[in-house]
Computed example of a mutant assay.
Amino acid sequence: MVAARQLDGVRRAAAAAAGEQARSVQAAREELTEVRTRLAAQQTRLRERGVPPISLVPSPPEVSEAARAMAGGPATVLAGLRAARERVDAADAALVARHPLRPASWSARARNLLVYGPLALVVPLIQVVVYASTGVGPATVAALICGLPMPAVAFVGGWLGVGRVFRPRPGDRLDRTSRFGALVCLVPAVLATVMLLLAMLAG
């Protein structure tokens, strides 16, 4: 009986160890995929900034040291990959800090405003110019009527433009700030319409 209980304990311990090892292997695979994707994106950004390709490839001593560090099994590999991901995060932060004027380093709203803003101002500016040029008349009324659907058109154009101008890095999801973009496109049109209507009524 004692031997049977001991054998059962050994089997349970072996099953638990095998399960933990399988979980570590799966987690290590996921970490490896993410780190590879992030490193590829960093390499692309650094090459665009003039960094020589040879500087982006690990040297033979670095490869040997990494291989020795990975010889401790799945748990050790997982810990090493998580440390590598932390270094990738630090490198991304350093790249952003060195180029604060690049839109890619701005918040999503500030960045997207560069696309939504100009599109939102086009029609209101045209309406104001028409009114200033012709005064109260058919041309101004036509400009007001034609401008009614323009906020929706500007929003759709901005939404598409954000995706073309600010392409996300591999593995990232682009934040188009849809509600903010809709507000940006709507406010100038409403203000211009109200101002022109008041001016026409006063005239």
Rank of each mutant, 00 (worst) to 15 (best):
M1K: 09
V2P: 00
R5N: 07
D8H: 07
R12G: 14
A14Q: 11
A16S: 09
E20G: 12
A22L: 08
A22G: 06
V25E: 11
E30A: 14
T37K: 12
A40Y: 12
Q43V: 15
R47H: 00
R47V: 08
R49P: 10
V51P: 05
I54T: 12
S55F: 10
V57P: 07
P61D: 04
E62W: 03
E65Y: 02
E65A: 13
R68G: 09
R68E: 08
A79K: 12
R82L: 00
A84I: 04
A84T: 13
R87Q: 13
A90P: 04
A94G: 11
A94N: 10
A97F: 06
R98L: 14
H99L: 11
H99I: 09
P100M: 03
L101Q: 12
S105I: 10
A108R: 10
L114V: 15
L114Q: 14
G117T: 03
G117C: 02
G117F: 14
A120H: 04
A120E: 09
V122Y: 06
P124G: 00
L125I: 11
Q127Y: 03
V128L: 14
A132I: 03
G135Y: 00
V136T: 10
V136E: 00
V136L: 00
A139G: 03
T140W: 03
V141C: 00
C146W: 06
C146D: 04
M150C: 10
M150V: 04
A152T: 04
V156H: 05
G157R: 02
G158W: 02
G161S: 05
R164P: 03
V165T: 15
F166W: 10
R167V: 15
P168N: 07
P168Y: 06
T177Y: 04
T177L: 11
S178M: 09
S178V: 13
S178R: 15
F180H: 09
G181K: 11
L183E: 02
L186T: 15
V187Y: 01
V187F: 12
A189H: 15
L191G: 07
A192R: 01
V194W: 03
V194T: 11
V194H: 03
L196R: 00
L198E: 01
G203Y: 00
